[in-house]
Each structure stands twice: as structure tokens, then as C-alpha cells.
Amino acid sequence: MEAIYAIWQRDLTKFFRDKARLFGSFTMPILFLLIFGGGMSGSMESMMAGGMGDSSDFNYVEFIFPGIVAMTLLMTSVFSAMSIIEDKDFGYMKEILVSPISRVSIAVGKMLGAATVATIQGILMFILIPFIGLSYDLVAILQVIPFMFLLACALSGLGLLFASIIKSTQGFQMTVQILVMPMIFLSGALFPINNMPAWMDVIVKINPVTYGVDVMKKIIIDVDSLSPAVIEAMGLNISVFGRQVTIFEEIIFIAVFAVVLILLATISFRRANA
């Protein structure tokens, strides 16, 4: 536990000392929020009005904001794992590998460090709420934070798995970028995922970010106050094999996904550094 805590603390210290990384990590989420929320909100709300007959209850910015937070968690969690490759290049990883620390502890410490950093950045996104004209219940925001950490653990496990296999930072960045962008666009973060082609719908349903985004929307947005037409238009009724998935089942899926990815990442990390 001391080894895990030391590695976790080191990653947090590096994060807070690197001002450029702290600033840069917000660039893409804020750009997506401005471009999609500010530039496309009118078009999207008009489109929804055509499908619902009335768009008075539909706020596109309110729809995408939880997705933007989930996108921040995804990008930060996965890309934080790149520090493993950097530690190898600078010799730090070799130093801790020869120390009496189990490699499982190293992997878990890295995972928790990346998940904590991602959760902090996701929480900081909530600062934008009053500036973009939204109003969320404080209790709902507090309730979603533990799930944010769970989702970040699952996604950091994914990044850790790739970092244990790929040998260069350039290869890691290119591979992860190819993976991350489809996970964002096929998750319901920026637009509803209803009426997808059959082959694309399969990808949507196996994408863990889909369920992460859906849980965050259902917790943050007051779904009970929305009409069934708006709920359907927002894509908040995810069904698998013709059965609607509950929020509890989505949380269980993310938890199982996190455990499996952490186990796979730990095994791969041990083999790659044997």
C-alpha cells in the first residue's frame, strides 16, 4: 500500500506542477463545448423539434455537457498512461523495477494516479456550469463524482494496457488517438445515438463510454421532468437485445469492465517488464 500511495502521489504532484498540461487538457473539451454547444445548438434543437413536434424542453448544451465531462475523463485517463513510456525512456521505471516493489503495485498505483487526475479535471469542468447558462442540482453533481472515478479507473486501465504493449510515445499517441475519437463520437456524448446503422449500433453497445455518458446524463439531468419524446430524442433509452438497460446495470457493466481491464493491464505490465 505504501508503494501504491507513493506512485499515486508522484503522478498527482507531476500533474499539479505541469501548468501547461493542466491548461492544455481543457483545450479540446472546451473547444467541443463552444463549437457544438454554441455553434450547433440552434441547428440541433431545430432538428429535434422536427422529430418531437416541440423542442421547448430540449436544451442541447444541457445534453452535451455531461458528455463533454465524460470526454475529459476518457482523454485524461488514457493519455495519462503515457507516463509509463516516458518513465521507461528516462530510466525511472528501471529504478522502481529493481526496488522491492511488486509490479502489481506499480500498475495499480499508476492506474489510481491516472484516475484521480482525470476525476479532478472532470470536476473542474463543473466550474463552467454558471458561465454556459446551465443549472444543475448540487446533490446530483456530488452523486456523479464517485461514478466519474469508477469510469476513470476503467479507462485508465485501458490506457495502461496499451502503454504496457507499445514501446514509443509516438506509437502510443497515434494508436490511442485512433481509438479515442470513435469512442467519443459513438458514445452519445455529442449527439443522440438513436437510429444508427446495425453495424454501428453494435459498436455503440460495446463501447464502455456509451454507458458512462448515459449514467452521467441520467444522474445530472433531471430526467423525470422531461417528456417521453425528449427522453427518446436525447437517446436516454439504451436497449440491448430489445431490453432497456437500467442505470444500475450500466454501473455494474463499468465496474466489471474496470476490473477486467485492470487485471489485463497488470498481467501485460508484468510480462512486458519481466
Rank of each mutant, 00 (worst) to 15 (best):
residue 152 A to K: 10
residue 272 A to V: 02
residue 55 S to C: 04
residue 178 I to V: 13
residue 251 I to E: 08
residue 59 N to V: 09
residue 79 F to T: 01
residue 173 Q to A: 10
residue 110 K to G: 15
residue 234 M to Y: 03
residue 248 F to V: 07
residue 251 I to M: 13
residue 196 M to D: 09
residue 11 D to G: 11
residue 99 S to A: 14
residue 128 L to W: 13
residue 148 M to S: 08
residue 195 N to I: 01
residue 237 N to Q: 07
residue 158 L to V: 09
residue 33 L to D: 05
residue 111 M to A: 12
residue 204 V to E: 06
residue 234 M to Q: 08
residue 35 I to F: 13
residue 125 M to F: 02
residue 35 I to A: 12
residue 176 V to F: 00
residue 205 K to C: 04
residue 232 E to F: 05
residue 194 N to R: 11
residue 249 E to D: 01
residue 109 G to V: 00
residue 175 T to V: 12
residue 27 T to C: 15
residue 89 D to S: 09
residue 192 P to L: 11
residue 20 A to E: 08
residue 106 I to E: 00
residue 189 A to K: 03
residue 69 V to L: 03
residue 145 I to W: 08
residue 98 V to F: 01
residue 31 L to F: 14
residue 240 V to F: 14
residue 266 T to C: 02
residue 20 A to S: 09
residue 95 E to G: 03
residue 45 E to R: 13
residue 146 P to V: 03
residue 161 L to D: 01
residue 108 V to K: 07
residue 174 M to F: 08
residue 44 M to R: 12
residue 50 G to V: 09
residue 76 T to E: 09
residue 164 S to W: 03
residue 34 L to M: 12
residue 193 I to Y: 07
residue 78 V to G: 00
residue 23 F to P: 15
residue 5 Y to S: 07
residue 117 V to N: 08
residue 137 D to G: 14
residue 232 E to I: 03
residue 47 M to N: 11
residue 189 A to E: 03
residue 52 M to P: 05
residue 232 E to P: 06
residue 117 V to W: 06
residue 12 L to Q: 10
residue 83 S to T: 08
residue 83 S to A: 10
residue 47 M to E: 12
residue 65 F to L: 14
residue 165 I to N: 02
residue 190 L to F: 13
residue 94 K to R: 14
residue 200 M to D: 10
residue 209 V to I: 15
residue 58 F to K: 04
residue 154 A to V: 02
residue 118 A to R: 01
residue 105 S to M: 06
residue 127 I to W: 11
residue 231 I to S: 15
residue 179 L to W: 03
residue 234 M to G: 08
residue 42 G to S: 15
residue 3 A to Y: 04
residue 34 L to K: 11
residue 152 A to D: 13
residue 134 L to A: 12
residue 115 A to F: 08
residue 220 I to T: 05
residue 183 M to N: 05
residue 219 I to N: 04
residue 215 V to C: 15
residue 224 D to I: 03
residue 218 K to F: 04
residue 7 I to E: 06
